Simulated scan of single mutants.
Amino acid sequence: MSAAPASSRFAFPIKVLPEDIDFMGHVNNARYLNWVQDAVLAHWNKLAPAEEVASKAWVALKHEITYRKPAFLEDDVIAQTVLERYNGARAFYHTVIQRGEEVLAEVKSSWCCIDAKTLRPARIGEHMREFFFPEGE
């Protein structure tokens, strides 16, 4: 298990689309989970080596979300995600969805790394630590 501090914060810009808006005129709550998935996968794709990106996939195991404020169609929204730690095939993320300085939602999530061919859980190797938890950060 990782004893290292959390990875650097990864910023993922979000475009609010008309289809994200529900009958109450704001972003549907379920859409936030899509944003978290998009942010986590973008984080992996940006930092992991190409061979790891090609050979691994991710499935969500658990999301714990706290909604703070609604988002609307014209909002500039960003998801700030941090890989807190990983252990075996599991990775644990904390994502904050914001509009400027306002926190719209906070999400704690756990993910399972799987082999892209066999679709079985795949251990996240210790060699990945250097990409996600570089020394000095």
Rank of each mutant, 00 (worst) to 15 (best):
V77I: 14
G88Y: 09
F131Q: 00
M24I: 03
E130K: 08
P134H: 05
T95S: 09
P121M: 02
R68D: 03
I14D: 07
D22K: 07
D20Y: 03
T118Y: 05
R9D: 15
V77F: 00
A30Q: 06
F132M: 05
V96L: 11
K56Y: 03
H127C: 03
A79P: 05
P121Q: 00
A91C: 02
K56V: 04
H43M: 04
L41H: 07
A71D: 12
N87E: 06
S7K: 02
S109G: 08
M1G: 15
R99Y: 09
A42K: 12
H43R: 05
A3I: 13
A6G: 15
V82Q: 13
R129H: 12
G100V: 15
N34L: 04
R68M: 11
L41I: 09
Q80K: 04
L61K: 09
A11Y: 03
T95D: 08
E64Y: 06
A48E: 00
P5Y: 07
N29K: 05
V107W: 00
F23D: 01
I65V: 15
R85K: 15
C112N: 07
A3T: 15
R99E: 06
V40N: 04
L83R: 01
E137H: 10
V77G: 01
P49A: 11
R120E: 15
A122E: 08
V59C: 08
D75A: 13
A79S: 10
E137L: 04
A79E: 01
F12W: 13
A3D: 15
F72N: 06
E52T: 09
D22A: 08
N29M: 05
S8D: 13
P121R: 01
L119F: 01
E52H: 11
D75T: 11
R85M: 09
A89Q: 03
P134L: 08
V96S: 11
D115W: 02
G25Q: 07
V96A: 11
Q37A: 09
A4D: 13
F132C: 03
G88V: 11
I124S: 02
A11C: 12
A57R: 13
T81F: 09
F72H: 14
